[in-house]
Amino acid sequence: MAEELDDYCKIFVDLVSTTAVTNLLSELADEPFAGRTIELSIMIIDVLENPDAGLTDDFVTWPVLIEIEKPPDAAWEDYIAGIDRVLVHLWGNGAQAVTACDFEHKLPWSGGIRRVVN
C-alpha cells in the first residue's frame, strides 16, 4: 500500500522577523514575495508571525511560521526537495528551523528536530 501523506508543512523559524525570513527565501527562489506569499511551481509558501511566539522555549513558539503547500501539479519528489532546500538555506544563514509535517522523516535531520541547538 502506498504511503498517504498530507502535503501541508509548517516550518518554525527562530528569527526575529518575517521580513528576515522572506528576504532569505526570496534570495533562494530568486523571486520576490507578493505580500507574505510566494508561489513557485513546486510549492506555495506563506511567511507569518507565529501567534504562539514566546509562550514557551519550545520550537513551536519560535517567532516566525512558514506554511508550505504543494500545488496540485507538483511532483512529490520536487516538493520535498524544495522544502529540503528551504531548510538548508535557512540553516546556512544562521537560522534555527524545524518542520512539522507528515514527511519529516524524508527531510534532513528529520526536518530539523535533531539539529535544534538549545
Rank of each mutant, 00 (worst) to 15 (best):
D14E: 09
D7Y: 11
P71H: 03
T19M: 11
P51L: 02
I80W: 01
A97C: 07
R115H: 11
E3N: 12
W91S: 09
E49C: 01
F103N: 08
F12P: 04
G35D: 05
T56I: 04
L24K: 12
D102A: 14
T61G: 07
E77I: 10
E77H: 09
L90E: 00
Y79A: 01
E39V: 10
L55T: 05
T56D: 14
D46L: 07
V47Y: 05
F103G: 04
V117N: 14
V117I: 15
V13E: 01
R36C: 04
G82A: 10
C101V: 01
I42S: 13
E4A: 11
T61E: 13
D84S: 12
G112F: 11
L15V: 04
K106Q: 14
A74P: 02
L25V: 01
A29M: 04
A34V: 10
A81M: 06
D7H: 12
F103W: 07
R36P: 08
A20M: 13
K106T: 01
I42W: 05
S41W: 02
I42E: 15
C9R: 08
I45E: 03
L24N: 05
K70L: 08
F59H: 13
G112A: 10
E49H: 06
K10I: 03
K70Y: 04
P71E: 03
P63D: 10
C101S: 14
M43N: 04
W76L: 02
V86R: 00
L24M: 11
A75I: 03
E3H: 15
L87M: 13
G35M: 01
D52I: 10
I42N: 14
G54Y: 03
N50C: 04
E49P: 00
E69H: 00
L107I: 01
P51F: 02
V116M: 15
G82C: 04
M43R: 12
A20T: 11
D73C: 03
I83V: 14
E27S: 15
T56H: 09
A75H: 04
L48Y: 15
T61R: 07
I80F: 05
D30R: 08
L87V: 10
D73W: 06
F103L: 06
K70D: 03
D57N: 05
R85Q: 13
P32W: 05
N23R: 13
S110P: 00
G92E: 13
D46Y: 11
K10F: 11
F59I: 09
H89P: 00
L48I: 12
W91G: 11
T56F: 09
N23D: 15
R85P: 00
V64F: 10
E4N: 13
G54V: 02
I45N: 03
Y8A: 07
A81H: 09
I113A: 10
D57G: 09
D46F: 07
P51M: 01
E104W: 03
S26A: 15
L55Y: 08
M43Q: 14
I38M: 15
A34W: 03
V88Y: 01
L15Y: 02
S110V: 12
I66N: 02
L40D: 08
D73G: 09
Q96L: 13
D7A: 12
A20I: 06
W76F: 02
A75Q: 09
F12G: 08
G111M: 07
G54F: 03
A2K: 13
T99F: 04
L40T: 11
R114N: 13
F59E: 11
P32T: 13
I45A: 12
V86M: 07
D57C: 00
I42H: 12
G35P: 02
T19E: 15
W91I: 08
T61M: 07
